[in-house]
Amino acid sequence: MKTILYKADSRGSANHGWLNTKHSFSFANYYDPERINFGVLRVLNDDTIAGGKGFGMHPHDNMEIITIPFEGDLAHKDNMGNASVIKQGDVQVMSAGTGVYHSEFNNNPDKAVKLFQIWVFPNKRNVTPRYDQISIREVAKENELYQILSPNKEDQGVWIHQDAWFHLGKFDAGKSDTYSLKKDGNGVYLIVIDGELEVEGQVLSTRDAIGIWDIEKVQFKAAIDSQLLIMEIPMELSY
């Protein structure tokens, strides 16, 4: 087993007034040569966007982009004709492929929206761009992990062009669980959304994360009521 610890206070940060963001990996003006990516996980931005503010139309290509709101509502528009509002309990995915333009704005004028935006390198380049958004409220479970993303269209959650599986979970204090990896050669990036977990001997607090690879299973236990996101992803990029 190999591990790398990412403490919450070691992340890059930027406060633009309307946007307060934390970067787990090098992004925009934050650059750390030791923090470019973890496997095919390229970006994990922890964003708080002020009321009525947001990102105007901007381009992406050849990236799988996943957005998970935790508070508030995010309005999305793109050049594929999609216009929607993403709320807490939703997951959005966009396969940028050959290229897309989109905008993201806080849909409420008087309260912040808080979200993770995650970029994953795809296993196929120049695919036809696509957009999807689902509610995960009906599949959410207590004291058990539940899948929100996979490589398979027929599986629970959204799907992407990559051999990746994402799971969320809320666990009461004292509860534990084990995640079994689904594909050889994959690793796990686990981030504590809130609370405190013991993960393979490491104690992680809110927004702390750990990368683990060369392992078949990951065990964790909640020290207090906690929420986490587990991302299983390939450790090597291949097209």
Rank of each mutant, 00 (worst) to 15 (best):
D208V: 05
K22A: 12
V139T: 15
N143F: 07
D184H: 05
H102P: 09
Y179M: 04
V91M: 07
R42N: 07
K175L: 06
G187N: 06
A173V: 03
I136Y: 15
V120N: 01
A83T: 15
I118E: 06
S10M: 11
V199I: 09
I68S: 05
G97D: 02
S226H: 00
G157T: 09
D9T: 08
S150V: 09
D110M: 03
M235W: 10
L228S: 01
G99N: 10
Y131T: 10
D184P: 09
V203R: 09
L115D: 03
L41F: 09
L228I: 11
M231L: 15
G56C: 02
S226K: 00
H102C: 12
W159S: 15
I148N: 06
G211V: 05
L237I: 12
Q88I: 00
R137S: 14
N143W: 01
A14R: 08
P59W: 04
Y189L: 11
L149Y: 06
F220I: 07
T178D: 05
H76E: 08
D214S: 13
L204S: 02
S84M: 08
G56Q: 07
G185Y: 05
E142K: 14
R42C: 07
E34Q: 14
P59V: 08
A28G: 09
W165I: 13
V100R: 02
N15E: 08
L228P: 00
G51E: 02
M231E: 01
G56Y: 01
A223H: 15
F70N: 01
F105E: 03
H23Q: 11
A8V: 03
A209Y: 02
E200W: 04
S10V: 07
I148K: 01
K170M: 07
Q133I: 12
K221D: 04
K87I: 03
F55I: 11
S205G: 15
K141S: 12
V43R: 03
Q219K: 15
K22H: 14
G72L: 10
P151Q: 02
N186Y: 03
H60V: 10
I193E: 01
G201W: 04
T3N: 10
P234I: 03
M1T: 13
M57L: 14
Y30G: 04
E200N: 14
S180W: 00
F171S: 05
T21Y: 04
P151C: 08
E34V: 07
M63D: 07
N107Q: 12
F166C: 10
D46M: 08
I210Y: 05
R130S: 15
Q202R: 12
W213K: 14
H60C: 09
D9S: 13
I36W: 00
Y101C: 06
G157R: 01
I233H: 08
F70S: 05
S95D: 04
F171Q: 03
P151S: 11
R35V: 03
M235D: 05
A14G: 10
S24L: 13
D177V: 00
K170S: 14
M63T: 14
F121T: 12
W165V: 15
K114M: 11
N37H: 15
R130Q: 12
E236V: 15
F25M: 08
M231A: 13
L5E: 00
T21V: 14
E232Q: 06
P109E: 13
